[in-house]
Design a protein around this nucleic acid. Structure first.
Length: 466
RNA sequence: GGCGUCGUGGCCAAGUGGUAAGGCAGAGGUCUGCAAAAUCUCCAUCACCAGUUCGAAUCUGGUCGACGCCUCCA
């Protein structure tokens, strides 16, 4: 069986992946706060997680993947005030858009997609458990987590509490016992949304929801927890502390999640993506110009733990590679294969992905397979390589279109007349047969001006719109 | 101030102790009336310096440079 190795942030090294239960692997990835359009940076963890889930499904009989929707948060409240739109209108709209955008990137829907607001009771319950075990305390209407109650605090992020406090730029709130304590529950005032709780009307702190939803969705301990590197501290560190605190564990973070994977950030032309720089790239805008698969391949063109610099070139190169793969597939349109009969063990792509998601290597391998397919000179070989190509593509979540559609073959825009195109091609071929190459070339340039490219193949002339 | 990451050919990007994958671009060849596609060949000693080693892009120390987190953030 293929062996998966992944880099575990908790141990800061690449490890063999050993599931809690080999018959049922469970994974959680922090999902979006739905208050705006999803940008390209939001897509990276989703695509990487999706890829890992696909690999896991290849190896293990059952995989449950949960990823949440955060639908209560100060950012949402602010967006609601700014746009004078009810909160649930904002959250339902942007959740729908997020899911649509991810789908177009080939991200399979999570098995479970819990909403924070559906777990308020459970969050209150978890806080109560922390209070009962002296891991949390109430103060000035807030409930706070006491970081001194958890001895491994800082293990995930490699931080030392004392150092943090010394260099901190944030003033310590009056209601905190320790500077590092963080909010579990905070009061809601005026028109802020909230729920009744033993500590008054309020709402949960940011980190609490993921502790609750991951546990309720998957049970503890589960196998893998993912997210962006910027979440390591404080979000994930605090999730661990809360879950351990609630369950009376004061040391071992692995009673929560065994492995933690984190993707590096994405830069826009070398700069951090941020509102102030005005370089936020929304997936929506991109999808108007390029198919989702291009974006997906571009996102996995580099290793997930390396920063990815997003430029026009990144996109262009992904497009070129996909065109090449689709062309090799097009060449063997007539060959029918049964992918299910493919032997996973021999997959070079699966092997590459099993090595901590070495996507660059996987891409190199799939190009190699396509090359083999193009060169194949017998039906047996064509079958063999096509099967391997399709299996690999499915694993990577690409080549889901039909080659004809992708390459624009025989497809005219509304303002193009395909009958006319066919007629011109026929005329050109007659000219070619009569060795009137001047006329043939004239017709080609005429078609070119119409935005039509033609290609003479062994099976006749194929045209596609640019 | 603390923690951490990175620096591989013109560009993108793997490799992390045994002599530099892959893609793009470029050069040349095959095929084609031409073109396109396909295919073949060629194209780097791994920021710098000093060590460890039979052997280093890969380990250690230092220098320079880029960047992230510590505050909402994927």
């Amino acid at each position: 069986m293929a062996k998966l190795r992944i880099h575990n942030t908790l141990e800061k090294k690449k490890e063999d992946f050993i599931p809690v239960d080999p018959n049922h692997v469970r994974m959680y990835t922090c999902g979006p706060t739905v208050y705006n359009y999803a940008h390209i940076g939001n897509a990276r963890p989703a695509v990487i997680s999706d890829l890992l889930v696909r690999v896991l499904r290849c190896i293990y009989p059952k995989v449950t993947y949960a990823s949440n929707i955060t639908d209560i948060d100060d950012k949402i409240i602010n967006a609601s005030i700014e746009t004078k739109t009810p909160i649930d209108e904002i959250t339902s709209k942007f959740e729908r858009i997020y899911n649509e955008d991810m789908a177009s990137l080939g991200v399979q829907a999570p098995d479970i997609q819990p909403h924070a607001t559906d777990f308020i009771d459970e969050m209150i319950g978890l806080i109560q458990m922390m209070i009962d075990k002296n891991a949390a305390y109430e103060s000035e209407g807030h409930v706070l987590f006491d970081v001194t109650s958890y001895s491994s605090y800082g293990k995930l992020s490699g931080r030392d509490l004392e150092d943090q406090i010394a260099g901190s730029r944030v003033e310590v709130a009056s209601y905190k016992k320790n500077a590092g304590d963080f909010v579990l529950w905070k009061p809601s005032v005026d028109n802020q949304p909230g729920w009744e709780s033993p500590w008054g009307f309020g709402r949960p702190g940011w980190h609490l929801e993921c502790s609750v939803m991951s546990e309720k969705s998957l049970g503890l301990p589960f196998d893998i927890h993912g997210g962006g590197m910027d979440l390591i501290f404080p979000h994930h560190e605090n999730e661990i502390a809360q879950s351990c605190g609630a369950h009376g564990e004061d040391k071992d973070p692995k009673i929560f999640s065994r492995y933690w994977i984190h993707n590096a950030m994405l830069n826009m032309n070398g700069e951090k993506m941020s509102k102030s720089l005005g370089n936020i790239f929304y997936i929506r805008d991109f999808l108007d110009k390029q198919p989702g698969e291009v974006l997906r391949l571009a996102l996995i063109s580099g290793h997930y733990r390396q920063p990815l610099n997003w430029t026009d070139d990144t996109i262009e190169q992904a497009r070129i590679i996909l065109d090449k793969l689709y062309r090799s597939l097009k060449k063997t349109d007539d060959i029918k294969v049964d992918i299910d009969s493919f032997d996973n063990e021999s997959s070079t792509v699966l092997n590459a992905l099993c090595d901590d998601l070495n996507t660059s290597k996987a891409i190199a391998e799939i190009i190699e397979i396509a090359k083999n397919l193009s060169k194949a000179n017998s039906d047996d070989l064509k079958k063999k390589f096509k099967k391997e190509l399709l299996f690999s593509a499915n694993l990577m979540g690409i080549l889901q279109e039909s080659p004809d559609v992708w390459l624009g073959i025989g497809k005219a825009d509304d303002n193009l007349d395909s009958d006319n195109i066919e007629k011109l091609i026929q005329e050109r071929n007659e000219a070619r047969a009569a060795k009137d190459f001047q006329k043939a070339d004239d017709i080609r340039s005429q078609l070119n001006e119409m935005g039509i490219e033609i290609e003479d193949t062994a099976d006749g002339t194929v045209w596609s719109s640019k």
